[in-house]
Computed example of a mutant assay.
Amino acid sequence: MGRMTSRAPTVGFDLDMTLIDSRPGIRAAFRALSAETGTYIDADLAVTRLGPPLEQELRHWFPEEAIPEVADRYREIYPTYAIEPTLAMPGAREAVAAVHAHGGRAVVVTAKHEPNAKLHLAHLGIEADAVIGSLWAEAKAVALREHEASVYVGDHTGDVRGARTAGALSVAVATGPCDAAELRAAGADVVLAELTDFGSWLDAYAARERG
């Protein structure tokens, strides 16, 4: 599983709570949506369970028939409220640079609306080679296979499932809603405390695979 053979690696990365700390931005966007719709949303609670598609969170607050319209509106106002406050996770730029230093490609595969994902990366200067949005859990395997990713890095058990479905090595970072024990139990091949540990791990992994 997840062998690089003699080729440079293609490494997939999740976005929210893996490459970016989007909690401040998402909190602001949910508060704006709540004010606009007159519907109570506990934004502080919502940002503790990032990872799954937006619609899953909205179902906690809106009736099913309202979800498509409300989701579209959230995505429309998102750039206004969410891009500026969002921060890069520690080690994010360095992790992508480490892949490039090995001659590889860094591909972001996320459940987030793709145009908004691209806005985040551009704003923060994180230089991915491709960005694929609106894929969650096992569905992420579609993009990972298409780009021949041998490794997928994420913070959620859904990311672990996506990596395993794609036949990629699952590297999990315990920086999101799932702790290290949950990530291991879900089948992560490697669990890192945070993304700052990724570069040294990749160096060792590349040496083993090419050795």
Score class of each variant (00 low, 15 high):
His60Leu: 12
Asp203Lys: 10
Ala92Met: 09
Ala172Asn: 07
Glu55Thr: 12
Val173Cys: 08
His100Cys: 04
His100Leu: 10
Gly25Phe: 06
Asp42Tyr: 10
Asp72Cys: 10
Gly104Ala: 04
Trp136Phe: 15
Ala35Phe: 05
Arg93Pro: 07
Thr175Ile: 02
Ser34Ala: 10
Val109Lys: 11
Phe198Arg: 01
Pro63Trp: 06
Leu58Ser: 05
Thr196Phe: 03
Ile26Tyr: 02
Ala180Met: 04
Leu121Met: 04
Val109Glu: 01
Lys140Glu: 12
Gly103His: 06
Leu195Glu: 08
Ala188Arg: 03
Ala143Thr: 09
Ala180Arg: 09
Met4Arg: 11
Thr18His: 14
Ala106Asp: 06
Ala82Ile: 02
Ser22Tyr: 13
Asp16Met: 14
Asp189Lys: 00
Glu182Phe: 06
Ala35Cys: 04
Val47Ile: 15
Glu64Gln: 05
Leu33Glu: 01
Ala168Leu: 01
Gly211Asp: 12
Ala106Val: 01
Ala43Arg: 09
Pro68His: 00
Leu15Gln: 10
Cys178Tyr: 09
Glu69Arg: 00
Lys112Thr: 09
Pro177Trp: 10
Thr18Gln: 11
Phe30Ala: 03
Pro24Cys: 06
Arg49Gly: 07
Val191Asp: 12
Ala204Glu: 05
Ala186Lys: 02
Lys112Asn: 08
Glu55His: 14
Ala106Asn: 03
Leu192Gln: 05
Thr157Phe: 09
Ala168Trp: 00
Arg184His: 10
Gly158Phe: 02
Lys112His: 06
Arg3Met: 09
Ser170Met: 10
Leu169Asn: 03
Arg145Val: 14
Leu19Val: 10
Ser200Asn: 11
